[in-house]
Design a binder for these strands. Sequence first.
DNA 1: GTCATAATTGACTATATAGTCAGTTATGGA
DNA 2: TCCATAACTGACTATATAGTCAATTATGAC
Lengths: 225, 225
Amino acid sequence: MESTGQKRIERIDTSVNKPAIPPSRTEKRAAKTRKKLLTAALEIFSECGVDAAAIDMITERADLGKGTFYRHFTDKYDIAGVLVEQAIDHLIETLRESDRQPTTTLQEVLEHFLNAHYAFFRNHQDEFILLFQGRLLLKLERQATDRIEAPFSRYLEEIERQLMPFLGEKKLDWVRIRRLACAVAGFVFGFFSFAMIGMEPQDIADSIKPLRQSFVKSLTMFLTQ
Amino acid sequence: MESTGQKRIERIDTSVNKPAIPPSRTEKRAAKTRKKLLTAALEIFSECGVDAAAIDMITERADLGKGTFYRHFTDKYDIAGVLVEQAIDHLIETLRESDRQPTTTLQEVLEHFLNAHYAFFRNHQDEFILLFQGRLLLKLERQATDRIEAPFSRYLEEIERQLMPFLGEKKLDWVRIRRLACAVAGFVFGFFSFAMIGMEPQDIADSIKPLRQSFVKSLTMFLTQ
DNA sequence: GTCATAATTGACTATATAGTCAGTTATGGA
DNA sequence: TCCATAACTGACTATATAGTCAATTATGAC
């Protein structure tokens, strides 16, 4: 049942710090607790999957009381939504770091894409798993859909944004750009996921270089054909 | 708790029909019931995800009593395992249909791969979703791991088998072949999954042809470089 | 038709998990 | 120090789901 009225006990909001007000000790304590919950939840979700995870697992892992969870989040899908947003932020951030280096050709941009995704896969494996298991929920008419779908769109848009400058010569076909974004995102996530089944970590690492090479060539061809 | 002794009530086994014995009406009834359960479960799993699905949802959808479920399967993950095996069988079957047409070049084989995957995505969408949500369970230390992982390995091996003949000139590097299989599987599954978020169905269909073209070129390059 | 056997049923019990709230502990201000 | 307020706690209740089993219905052999 959805409560249309306000909650009796207001939840804590440490998500956005009001600017120019130094955080009190109380606020810092709450923020630290929230952080502990987020960290624990990410681990649990990546181990068990969001649906199979229980609140108790999270609070247990965070070494906090169960009631504390409900002062910070409404339910599992609430905290999962926050984590997905964070993960996408990290992925986009990683993409922008690549973007900071001067790039003059489409090939270079695409190489940066692949590098950035590989870095993300290596350095944020829990988030990688979270994103990849959450992604498919879309098709599945569920409540949390928008909360989950929105960050993924942001991600696709970031890829598109970085591509734009190099497509000036050709017509800026929206479908073609989105198609490319899907191809890049899909290839990288899909490859790493399958690689996790079929290959040893060292083999995965060794595969990156030649794959990058031919995938970049292929995409360049695709975009400029 | 794992019961090491035998169950008090033996479950029905209609999975493999003993050869040369015509099925009785009783057997056919049981087989039909089992089929109804499998069909309902596939729908439910692809709508809600395996972890979020409940037995009641499945028996409700199949219009059967709950107890019936337990005469045919031990639990959710048991029936999910059967469904994953079936889905992989369909995918492999689709791959073999492509293979039946005479292929003389690596490019043709790769084109058939892409065609077959696209056909599977179009004609078995529920199974596509099931496979794709199940796939990641691997990383996540769970009980059903082997049951789920084995079919995926079969799938990768089928891809490898079809590629073999065209790699005779080059050294048969096991890692390289598995890498290619991961690339094909990952690209196709990954692309379609992201396309489901970011694109309209018609745009997806329109994307197949040009994508196939450049992806095939890319993979050929990759294998023969 | 009658009986033995097998499949099916769904109400029932056991269990696990969600979500609550009165009580406890920490912080901030006087 | 003492009080007001906010964060935290975990035992508790409500609910949902898993899994069971005695009763029911269908089938097969005679």
